[in-house]
Amino acid sequence: MYNFEFEKPGSIADAVAALGSEDAMPLGGGQTLIPAMKQRLNAPSKLVSLSGIAEMKGVCVRDDGALSIGGATPHAVVAAEAGAHYPALAGLASHIGDPAVRNRGTIGGSLANNDPAACYPSAALGSGATIVTNNREIAADDYFQGMFTTALEEGEIIVEVRFPIPEKANYQKFVQPASRFALTGVFVAKYADGVRVAVTGASEEGVFRWSEAEAALSSDFSASAVDGLSVSPDGMIGDIHGTPAYRASLIKTLTKRAVAAAA
């Protein structure tokens, strides 16, 4: 990997200032960025570590009832601390990668990267979460803009993610056995005003909501409610691990499993 200047600020303000220089990039846990830099797919002139910023770490429930997770909170901490408030989210976090990866990788890093097969984007979109950056709040529906593409501007960092806590929820992941990413994953969350279904790993456009299933499940929250629906393989990812039709089929199967597990 090419060399770079390393900075580890102690506050959000200092991190934003450090990111002002050309080709600077934020470093979350580095579990994606470091392998990408080794392959020279990324070559920042400066890395600004977010791991030393205490105000960006931790899990707590806000006065409005939403679960707040600091952007630099590792997956292992979410797995351990979110369970009492949002078990489906803690369950998702506890199955990302492997234990060593979960001790480094962060929620902000995962959402900023928006890998089309990452788990967290489905939880954020499926919960209607709010992505809080150093200068604004972005609704999850506006945040995800396609594979590896988000609403984040250059130098903007995710300081917090707020998850409205659903009545019921579950995440089902069909693991791609070599990478442990989701070959397809479905996050289902039932709120008082309706059900949200977010799908990761399947679409060439990255994470998306399956609106037909949301409508069916909002009127009848049971696995059989989606029996009559099908997902078109158009626009689904096809690779050596699975065809577009296979992934489309997985979406329905995993949705049913998630609803059954949540209900």
Partner: peptide
């Protein structure tokens, strides 16, 4: 050297990490 095999696992502040996927400067 791609954070898959785990032969490089060490503990940093008591937690298992893949030392090939963490910068030395982060462990300062």
């Amino acid at each position: 050297d791609t954070s898959q095999c785990g032969a490089c696992v060490v503990h940093v502040n008591g937690e298992a990490v893949k030392s090939c996927t963490m910068f030395a400067a982060e462990a300062d």
